Amino acid sequence: MEERWKVKTPEHVTLNFQLAGLGSRGAAQIVDSILLALLYSGMIALLVFTENQMDFMLEGRGWVIAFVILVLFGIQWGYFFLFEWFSGGKTLGKMMLGLRVVKEDGGKATVLSIFIRNLLRIIDMLPFYYLIGMVMVFFHPQHKRLGDLVGGTIVIHERKKQRLKKKQTLVEKEIEKRDLESGQLVIGDWEKQNVTKKDWDLLKTYVYRYPTLKPEEKNNMTREVAEILLPKLELEDETKSEDELATRLYAAYIELREEWEFHL
């Protein structure tokens, strides 16, 4: 039976999330652990090879061991932190299992929340291989370990993508030209609620008209639409050129079209 987490937005819209339980989270952790083990093995093999070639390192063996421990910790912590930060709340293991870390309100996990939840892995890993973390995930109503509790995060199953039944020739050509595909741009469920029917109609009109416009018209329309929509999706960036803004708007269209095409 699926366990759900419901969030009520200020607009009185209820967001439903499927919580990731111990089984799926454990499977993702096993995948990540295997990858980390391969990294550790490669590093240790390199160290052994280097030490055999450099006799002077033998004299400072204690310093070398301390350095290795520090580096191993950095790899362990950095792997989870960097992947979840740059991949929208997903490690390689979570990607394979279709999981994602989000805030309790359904929004994208912040850098601070990701930092906290991964820093507290030190405790969740005790006394061996995440025993404390597994016990907490098993018994907690929202399947949270200590890092999730303090960081204000939950781990959810991502919504499965659906394919559009109709193909819009000009739109799809523009998407292919810009080398875009579903999943490249991360928009949190909370940010999606900022998009109104009027916003969606504006974005849809834009992506359909853009390929038919002259260069100057494209730039003007892109700038106007970007100023309206990107702040709502927390994707604004004043340093972007018109062409880069157009790419970002098309990527946003790809991520939003399922909800609006299939659920209106």
Score class of each variant (00 low, 15 high):
residue 187 I to V: 13
residue 253 Y to R: 09
residue 197 K to M: 09
residue 213 L to C: 08
residue 51 E to R: 12
residue 104 E to K: 02
residue 140 H to C: 03
residue 120 L to E: 02
residue 97 L to R: 06
residue 39 L to S: 12
residue 156 I to E: 05
residue 6 K to F: 00
residue 12 H to W: 11
residue 184 Q to T: 03
residue 178 R to Y: 10
residue 262 F to C: 05
residue 215 P to M: 13
residue 69 I to F: 15
residue 171 V to G: 04
residue 151 G to Y: 06
residue 70 L to Y: 12
residue 34 I to R: 04
residue 149 L to V: 03
residue 61 R to I: 13
residue 236 E to W: 11
residue 70 L to C: 13
residue 141 P to H: 10
residue 179 D to K: 14
residue 160 K to C: 05
residue 125 M to E: 14
residue 147 G to R: 01
residue 119 L to K: 01
residue 258 E to S: 12
residue 101 V to H: 00
residue 236 E to F: 05
residue 140 H to Y: 09
residue 244 E to W: 04
residue 44 I to G: 03
residue 107 G to V: 01
residue 156 I to F: 04
residue 39 L to F: 13
residue 248 R to W: 12
residue 200 W to Q: 02
residue 64 V to Y: 11
residue 94 K to V: 05
residue 100 R to H: 02
residue 5 W to L: 01
residue 227 E to K: 08
residue 233 L to M: 14
residue 123 I to F: 15
residue 209 R to W: 07
residue 255 E to A: 04
residue 215 P to S: 13
residue 150 V to P: 04
residue 110 T to K: 02
residue 61 R to A: 15
residue 140 H to G: 00
residue 247 T to D: 11
residue 162 Q to Y: 08
residue 125 M to I: 15
residue 17 F to Q: 01
residue 223 R to H: 03
residue 157 H to S: 06
residue 99 L to M: 07
residue 219 N to V: 11
residue 200 W to V: 04
residue 128 F to L: 14
residue 6 K to R: 03
residue 239 T to C: 06
residue 124 D to P: 02
residue 153 T to W: 02
residue 180 L to Q: 12
residue 91 T to M: 04
residue 134 M to T: 08
residue 126 L to T: 14
residue 96 M to I: 15
residue 259 E to T: 10
residue 170 L to E: 13
